[in-house]
Design a protein around this nucleic acid. Structure first.
Lengths: 231, 231
DNA sequence: TTTAAAAAATGATGTGGATCAGTTTTCTGA
DNA sequence: TCAGAAAACTGATCCACATCATTTTTTAAA
C-alpha cells in the first residue's frame, strides 16, 4: 500500500528511475534533482493538471498510474496515454510554451514528484543525456500517436479493443488490468455500452477473463492477431 | 513553375527558411548548412521515404507539399500531416533511432533538400537554437496529434471534414486547397465516397465552392462553428 | 450490516457511414 | 486532338456502433 503522506522519496534510491528519462544521470546530478523536487500523494481520481492551464513544472510518477486525456466537445474524455511509474508527464506543453492541451488524473492512489519549470529547464540546458532522453521520448510518443490515429481511422472497435488491451497489458505488467469500463471505453474510443458488450464477447471466446473490473489476458497471441499485429 | 533540376538552392537566400527550425541560425551556421545539404526535384506523387526503412537524414521542403501517412492493414493510407515549404520532415524516426513509422510522398511537384544524419546530429549537438526549435516542433506536433485523436474518436465525419478544411486552408494560404478526393478522404479518415457526398452538401449549403478538384473556403466562420472550434 | 450511490450490464432501436457496383467527367500523354 | 486511364461522382444496400432506457451488481460510507 502507498503511504498516504508527503514522504520525500529519494531519487537516488528510486527504483523506477531506471526506466525514466532521468535514468542516465550521474551521482551528483541525481542528488541535485532530489534536492529540487517535491513529493505529493494523490488519491485515486485526483486531478494533476487540467487542459487550458499553464505548466509550472513537470511531474514524475513514482508510484501509481495516471491517465492523460483530452476533453471532447460534450465533455467526453478521450484518453490518449496512460502513464505508469517512472514516467515524467506534463513536459510537452511546458516545452512548446503553450497551455496544457490535455488533462491528467490518477487512476489509482499514487505518489507523484514535482520539478519546477526553472529547475527542469536548467537541467535540460546543462545535461545532454537528459536532453537526449527527452527528445527520444517525444519522438517515440509521436510515433505511437501516429499508430493510434491510424487505428482509430481504420480499425473496428473490436480490433481497437484488442490492441488497447495489449498496450494495457504492457502498462500493468504482472498485475491484472484494472480500470473502469468507462475509462477503458474512453481509451479505445467507443461508447461504454459497446465496450462492455465486446468485452463479454472476448470473455466468451476465451481470449480474456474478468473478475468484476479486473481483466486478465489469457490468449495473448489470439488477441494480437485480432488487433492486426502489435509491436 | 518549379525548375525540374537538381539546382542547388541557397540556404542563405531561402525565403522559406524564416518559418523553419533553421530560422534562428547565424550567418556562419547557415553557410555550413548550405554547404552540407543537397537538393533534389521530386515530381508529384513521388515517394520520399517509406514506412519500415531506416532514416539516413532529414528532408527540408523548399517548395511544394508533402503528405505524411501511415499504411493501414488493407493498404489504405491515413494521412497524419501535410508538410508545406519550410518544414523539415523525417527527423522523428531518426531521433528515436527507430525505422520510419510513416511514409512521405509529394502532393505536387516539389523541391526538397537533404541533410545527412551525421551532419544534422552534429548541428543538433552544437547549436542550442536549433535544438530548441526542434524540441518545440516535436512538442507542438504532439499536441496537434492529441487533438487529431480526439476529433477522430468523438466528432462526426462532417465535423472532421470542416476541421480538416480549416487546417488545409492554413497550409494552402492564398491558393485554393488542391488535393485529390482520395487524399482528402484519407486525411479526414473516411471513405472517398462519403467525403465526396459531404463536400457536395457543404457546397450546396454555400460554405465552400469547388472547381473540379480545387476547393475554396467561402464561409470560414460557419465552417469553424461546424468543426466545433479551431485554434 | 444496511443502504444509497455509482458502476456494470442488458435490451431495444435508430442511423451514420462503409461497401459495392456502377456511370460520368477530367486528365494525361501519345 | 484523341483515346485510354484515372479520378470524380451517384445510387442502393447493409451493419457496426451509438443512443436511450432500465435492471442488476458492486462499492463505499454511515
Amino acid at each position: 500500500m502507498v503511504e498516504k503522506s508527503h514522504k520525500h522519496v529519494n531519487c537516488e534510491a528510486c527504483a523506477v528511475r531506471s526506466n525514466s528519462i532521468f535514468a542516465h544521470l550521474t551521482g551528483e546530478d541525481v542528488a541535485n534533482l532530489d534536492h529540487h523536487k517535491s513529493c505529493q500523494f494523490y488519491k485515486k481520481n485526483q486531478t494533476i493538471f487540467v487542459e487550458g492551464s499553464y505548466p509550472r513544472g513537470v511531474y514524475c510518477v513514482n508510484h501509481g498510474k495516471v491517465k492523460i486525456y483530452a476533453l471532447g466537445d460534450e465533455g467526453k474524455e478521450q484518453i490518449v496515454h496512460i502513464a505508469k511509474a517512472g514516467e515524467v508527464i506534463g513536459f510537452r506543453a511546458m516545452l512548446s510554451g503553450e497551455s496544457y492541451k490535455l488533462s491528467a488524473s490518477t487512476l489509482e492512489d499514487s505518489n507523484i514528484c514535482f520539478v519546477s519549470k526553472d529547475d527542469f529547464l536548467n537541467m535540460m540546458d546543462t545535461l545532454p543525456s537528459l536532453r537526449n532522453s527527452l527528445i527520444q521520448e517525444l519522438s517515440k510518443e509521436l510515433g505511437e500517436r501516429a499508430i493510434f490515429i491510424t487505428n482509430l481511422a481504420q480499425k473496428t472497435v473490436r480490433e481497437r479493443l484488442a490492441y488497447s488491451l495489449m498496450i494495457l497489458a504492457d502498462i500493468y505488467g504482472d498485475e491484472p488490468i484494472n480500470l473502469s469500463r468507462e475509462d477503458l471505453a474512453n481509451f479505445v474510443g467507443t461508447a461504454t455500452e459497446t465496450l462492455i458488450r465486446l468485452l463479454k464477447e472476448l470473455k466468451e471466446e476465451g481470449l480474456i477473463d474478468t473478475q468484476t473490473r479486473k481483466i486478465f489476458i489469457t490468449k495473448k497471441e489470439e488477441l494480437i492477431q485480432l488487433a492486426g499485429g502489435y509491436r
